Simulated assay, not measured.
Amino acid sequence: MKIGFRTIKTAVGVSISILLAQLLQLEYYSSAGILTLLCIQKSRKQSTQAVISRFFACLAGLLFSSVLFTLIGYHPYAFLVLLLVFIPLCVRMKIQEGIASSSVIVMHVYMHRKIEAAFFLNEFLVILIGLGVALLVNWYMPSIDKELNRCKEEVDRLIAAILKEMAAYLKEGYTMWDGKEIIQLGDALNQAKRLALLDAENNLLRKASSYEAYFETKRRQFEILDRMLPPISKITVQMEQGSRIGDFVLELSGSLGNNDSTDQFREKLHAIREYHKLLPLPESRHEFENRASLYTVANELERFIQTL
């Protein structure tokens, strides 16, 4: 059995909330712990949004139920009217996240059966302690930089491996590659995207996430590599042009992450394409189709280089 950090924060937060509410001798003090439990989220942004929506929902539930129970009476059927009106109201106010939390307060109103200032103060303090402790406890988030850096290394490794396999096919016309790195790269990018989003939500004061931008670039590179596979697979013969582009792709795979070489690669690819223009025209349809596939590969390589 593994106990996660979020579980630990939830346990600590609930205990602190109940302790504070009990020390203040509040009625229904255990409900402060329930409110804290409902507000522990995966990120600071989600936690802040949860606390805000639950705070207004709880206040709305407190006032609305007090008025409704006074008019209709403290009877079970009053909940029918309450929920039919209150839930759409929360949705309209975009605080539907707080419906469950506000139900805790509504039950207090129903059980107390009296409208008095001391009760309203008690409920306000229960709400304040429960939500405030959740916000404070959830504000500490462990760094996920190590996980993100591991994702960066894995993504770069997979892209380099795919380029090497492409280069081998262009140079040799044969490879035993099963394409598993393409699937692994897609999965790695999806995981990286989730982590980068979590990192951004935990750093609310930072305008932009460098990780988000980095993995977005890698996503574009992945899409380009995926588009390159069909034209490469259509090349059925070894050609001097294919070997030349294969050498270029192999060199590119070994220089990923080196932004200083972008202009150099752009110039090399341009020189290769200019050289190909000087070659004699294809002598057969088969040769024409192979050279057309190489031309498509070269176009995608240009787009790839622009992302470096």
Rank of each mutant, 00 (worst) to 15 (best):
residue 1 M to A: 10
residue 5 F to C: 03
residue 8 I to Q: 04
residue 8 I to F: 12
residue 10 T to P: 01
residue 10 T to S: 12
residue 10 T to Y: 00
residue 11 A to F: 10
residue 12 V to C: 02
residue 13 G to N: 00
residue 15 S to T: 11
residue 19 L to T: 06
residue 21 A to Y: 07
residue 22 Q to Y: 13
residue 25 Q to V: 02
residue 31 S to P: 02
residue 34 I to P: 01
residue 34 I to G: 01
residue 36 T to K: 01
residue 37 L to K: 00
residue 41 Q to T: 07
residue 42 K to Q: 13
residue 43 S to T: 15
residue 48 T to E: 06
residue 48 T to R: 13
residue 48 T to Y: 10
residue 54 R to H: 10
residue 59 L to W: 15
residue 61 G to L: 00
residue 62 L to S: 03
residue 62 L to Q: 04
residue 65 S to M: 00
residue 67 V to G: 00
residue 74 Y to P: 07
residue 82 L to Y: 15
residue 86 F to K: 14
residue 86 F to W: 15
residue 94 K to F: 03
residue 95 I to P: 05
residue 95 I to N: 05
residue 97 E to S: 11
residue 98 G to Q: 10
residue 99 I to M: 12
residue 103 S to V: 07
residue 107 M to E: 05
residue 108 H to R: 03
residue 112 H to P: 02
residue 113 R to H: 03
residue 115 I to G: 06
residue 121 L to C: 02
residue 122 N to A: 04
residue 123 E to P: 10
residue 125 L to G: 01
residue 126 V to Q: 02
residue 127 I to V: 12
residue 129 I to H: 05
residue 134 A to H: 02
residue 136 L to P: 03
residue 137 V to E: 00
residue 144 I to R: 13
residue 145 D to P: 00
residue 146 K to A: 11
residue 146 K to N: 05
residue 148 L to A: 11
residue 148 L to D: 06
residue 149 N to Q: 12
residue 153 E to K: 15
residue 153 E to H: 14
residue 164 K to L: 12
residue 165 E to Y: 10
residue 166 M to C: 08
residue 167 A to G: 14
residue 171 K to V: 08
residue 172 E to H: 13
residue 175 T to A: 07
residue 176 M to V: 08
residue 185 L to G: 12
residue 197 L to T: 14
residue 202 N to I: 02
residue 206 R to W: 08
residue 212 E to I: 10
residue 214 Y to D: 08
residue 216 E to T: 09
residue 220 R to C: 01
residue 221 Q to R: 15
residue 228 M to Y: 08
residue 230 P to Y: 09
residue 233 S to P: 00
residue 235 I to A: 05
residue 238 Q to N: 15
residue 243 S to V: 11
residue 257 G to P: 01
residue 258 N to F: 09
residue 266 R to V: 01
residue 266 R to N: 05
residue 267 E to S: 11
residue 271 A to H: 05
residue 277 K to D: 01
residue 279 L to N: 03
residue 285 R to T: 03
residue 290 N to Q: 12
residue 293 S to I: 04
residue 299 N to D: 04
residue 301 L to C: 02
residue 302 E to H: 10
residue 302 E to G: 12
residue 304 F to M: 09
residue 307 T to K: 15
residue 308 L to A: 06
